[in-house]
Amino acid sequence: MTLQVGILYSRIRRDEKLLLNELRERGHEVEKIDVRKQAFDIQEAGEAFDDLDLVIDRCLATSRSLYATRFCEAYGIPVVNSNETAEVCADKVKNSLALEAAGVPTPATKVAFTKESALEAIESFGYPCVLKPVVGSWGRLMAKIDSKSAAEAILEHKATLGHYEHKVFYVQEFVDKPGRDMRVLAVDGEPIAAMARSSEHWLTNAAKGAKTEPFELDDEALELVEKASDAVGGGLLGVDLMETGDSYTVHEVNHTVEFKALNDAVDIDVPGAVVDWLEEKAQSEADTRSMEVRA
């Protein structure tokens, strides 16, 4: 079936372009929706949303992603990812809580609201440990803390100069990983492709220039990816894992996942596989709706 697909965006990255090209190549109609130009009405959907079978949320800004997906759901349009998934993934605290609750191994984490209690949390983990902003990406504003004096300085700076979200201190044990972590792109828990990202630096984000290579998932990793995906409500996700020696730990799940680096690293046609899944998803949504109409 030919689909009418809406893409929520504010910036077309190479990832979005890969998706757009793949969708158009298959004859689907694409409605690019620049969220900066929308005024979302609580009563009815704007013209841009007419006749859409599916919306893909590719908003760069977390706040926009959360509201825009909420509106899509209010308008009765299936959206990838769901608002529920976005809510959990957009916030590192909710992300960690969801993984922990689902029994997915995730680094030990504590959250504190004042620099005094944050320092206590840091001391309880010992050095080094990690301090992360609760919202944000690409490894930005992440701190590896090596000493008490460094901890005090960072907390002081955050408390004084930071935006209110930086007054939520997310403190995590430092995982002594072997110079790399893994990114798995998965659709409803089923991996499309995976890569290892290695760097001399403790931050191994592709956005920070880490070296990437394909990574073969073993049974344990496969199971963790599935559980991690379920934990956040499923969808098109980027599951990040670190090796702990005998097993893995999942440090986060991303909901507006970038895949250009992965597409370059592996032999798999990543946008092709993503669109395969989107087509299935749209079909099953349409089936459910027609069943509802008949019932």
């Binding site: 800004a61 977390t62 990406s137 991303n254 909901h255 507006t256």
Partner: peptide, 11 residues
């Protein structure tokens, strides 16, 4: 000119 990168931007 493109807008500046914002803090809550990312994956």
């Amino acid at each position: 000119k493109a807008p500046e990168l914002e803090e809550d931007w990312g994956e």
